[in-house]
Design a binder for these strands. Structure first.
Length: 517
RNA sequence: GUGGACGUAGCUCAAUGGCAGAGCACCUGAUUGUGGUUCAGGCGGUUGAGGGUUCGAGCCCCUUCGUCCACCCCA
């Protein structure tokens, strides 16, 4: 028969078996128990959702990486994360539950990305959502739950990075930047630090081609006294969109000027306003970048970072609500029990998902070979419930672990023992198979992992197989044993064996495994 | 999306342009009912696919598919 072509697994998808599979189940059940102990109830959610669920609030990065398709006139997506699903389920079915509501989940998600080390297209998230609880204590509860979860798995040497979306936001809001530029800067705080300003300006030019010209004009303006027209322009800049729009309309009306084009008058005014404001973006961008750099330097021990942040807020005349929030959260975290890992407060931390509104955090782990992986990410998203149609504005926050990354951290760290003790039951001749199956069944009743050898291979081969499989014990039964109502119980580790009556065999096996394991 | 490396037996990899190989794994056997060693044998390939150069291509050239790694971003 001609062999057919192999069918390979899809890129970025993995088969999980044997030792890794059992390690994985242990990690998942340990975390599930841990969350359960903190009163987080498990939920199981669909893997497919309406694409729309991820377009509302998740952000372009997630949307671009969606596995998404049309099916019978519907747009359907494989979930790229679970928070949106949990909130969707909450809005759909759980809104009459008393708050706070604590939920946990565990399951596969899908993102169409280039696979590489510790990154797959299908991976598993294991996490929680805390719905209807706001404030530093709720935030601290989540930080603690994440850290203690890692500790429960035996991971102690991690780094918890805490930030707050509003720190950078209040800084940028003060400058009244255009929406597109503001969100660009929000997203690129990390890049400013990692690659430096020059490189960030390069990518800024891509979305704001007038960057250089605007910057030059802005600087010239700044050095000159405002001309006649400039005062009016400054007035308009300081108004809200609606006010400014109305002001221009009124102004034109009062002079009986009609805009005589084939376009709608409102549209023309919008463009005019847009133009006036855009001209001002250049110098503002410079100020923004300056301040962001200062902010980005504030990362380290919580006390130091906070002190620096308060000083900056004072200098730039910014609200300190977010800072006070962070300070309280970090205090409260100590009351939950101080985490064993290192805590870093990072004023420049930002995350790709757009729905975060407050606290954000990541947990990183560095193995001995110096590669650092992110194990966990999360934060607060107080308006997601409303965005997804919830009846009341409801605070919510959560985090999730990447299960595969936890496993790789555990593997590189300690190398937890994965071999389960097991028993091979071996018939000497084919006539002994029935007796062999009966023994196996009796052992399984006592929850002992048992393999029955039924393929008729020789005793020699069967023992060799059992050895290779890592069986701790072998039970051999042949004609002589059957007649005596006994079996040979052989300890594969010590090579010792003895005859044991069948009725006490399960108990004997249990005892041997108990002391050996 | 951008950049780099690589596709040869189930796995890890060899092979100046000159008969496609080794180790491991798997199967069988070495006095009839006893396993980590040893010995003998066996199975296993359209060298990812397609085209070109050449007397001759696993090797050189082009195309294509795939994989891995890094960037971006994230768990």
């Amino acid at each position: 028969m001609a062999t057919a072509d192999k069918i390979a697994a899809l890129r970025g998808m993995r088969d999980v078996y044997s030792a890794e599979h059992s390690a994985r189940r242990r990690v998942e059940s340990a975390l599930a128990q841990h969350f359960q102990l903190h009163s987080y109830a498990p939920v199981d959610l669909p893997i497919l959702e309406n694409t729309e669920l991820y377009l509302r609030k998740s952000g372009e990065d997630i949307a671009a990486r969606l596995y998404e398709f049309q099916f019978k006139s519907r747009r359907i997506a494989l979930r790229p994360e679970l928070t949106a699903s949990v909130i969707r389920a909450y809005v759909e079915q759980l809104q009459d539950d008393p708050l706070p509501l604590r939920l946990q989940y565990n399951g596969p998600v899908f993102r169409y990305e280039k696979p590489q080390l510790h990154r797959y297209r299908q991976f598993s998230l294991c996490g929680v959502e805390l719905i209807g609880a706001a404030g530093p204590l709720a935030d601290a509860e989540l930080l603690h739950l994440a850290c203690s979860g890692l500790e429960r798995l035996g991971i102690h040497d991690y780094e918890l990075r805490i930030g707050h979306t509003q720190v950078l936001q209040t800084l940028l809001d003060k400058l009244a930047l255009r929406y597109q530029l503001r969100s660009f800067l929000l997203r690129n705080m990390e890049n400013l630090r990692k690659r430096g300003r020059a490189q960030l300006v390069d990518s800024l030019r891509a979305i704001y081609p007038d960057y250089d010209a605007a910057a030059a004009v802005g600087r010239a303006d700044a050095g000159q006294p405002a001309g006649d027209g400039q005062q009016l322009i400054n007035l308009l800049r300081d108004m809200s969109d609606d006010e400014a729009h109305q002001a221009i309309t009124d102004f034109l009306r009062s002079l009986s000027i009609r805009i005589d084009t084939n376009r709608d008058e409102g549209e023309v005014i919008d463009r005019l306003l847009h133009k006036i404001r855009e001209d001002q973006q250049g110098p503002k961008l410079h100020v923004a970048l300056d301040r962001m750099q200062r902010l980005g330097e504030l990362a380290g021990a919580p006390e130091d970072a906070l002190e620096g942040a308060y000083a900056l807020a004072d200098e730039f005349e910014l609200d300190t609500d977010a800072l006070a929030d962070l300070e309280k959260t970090i205090d409260a975290l100590k009351d939950f029990g101080a985490p064993s890992g290192q805590i870093q407060l990072d004023m420049g931390l930002s995350r790709g998902l757009h729905y975060y509104t407050g606290l954000i955090f990541e947990i990183h782990y560095s193995s001995k070979d110096a590669e650092t992986v992110q194990l966990c990410g999360g934060g607060r998203y107080d308006n997601l419930v409303s965005s997804l149609g919830g009846a009341n504005a409801t605070a919510a926050a959560g985090f999730s672990f990447g299960v595969e990354r936890l496993l790789s951290a555990l593997k590189s760290d300690a190398g937890i023992s994965l071999n389960q003790p097991s028993v091979s039951v071996i018939p000497v001749q084919t006539e002994d198979i029935a007796a062999c199956l009966a023994i196996a069944a009796a052992l399984r009743k006592k929850k002992i992992v048992t393999e029955a050898m039924t393929d008729g291979r020789s005793l020699r081969r069967a023992l060799k197989y059992a050895d290779r499989r890592g069986a701790a014990l072998a039970i051999i039964i042949g004609e002589a044993e059957r007649e005596a109502g006994q079996a040979i119980l052989r300890d594969m580790r010590s090579h010792r064996e003895r005859q044991v009556p069948l009725d006490v065999l399960p108990a004997e096996v249990g005892a041997l495994l108990g002391e050996g394991g």
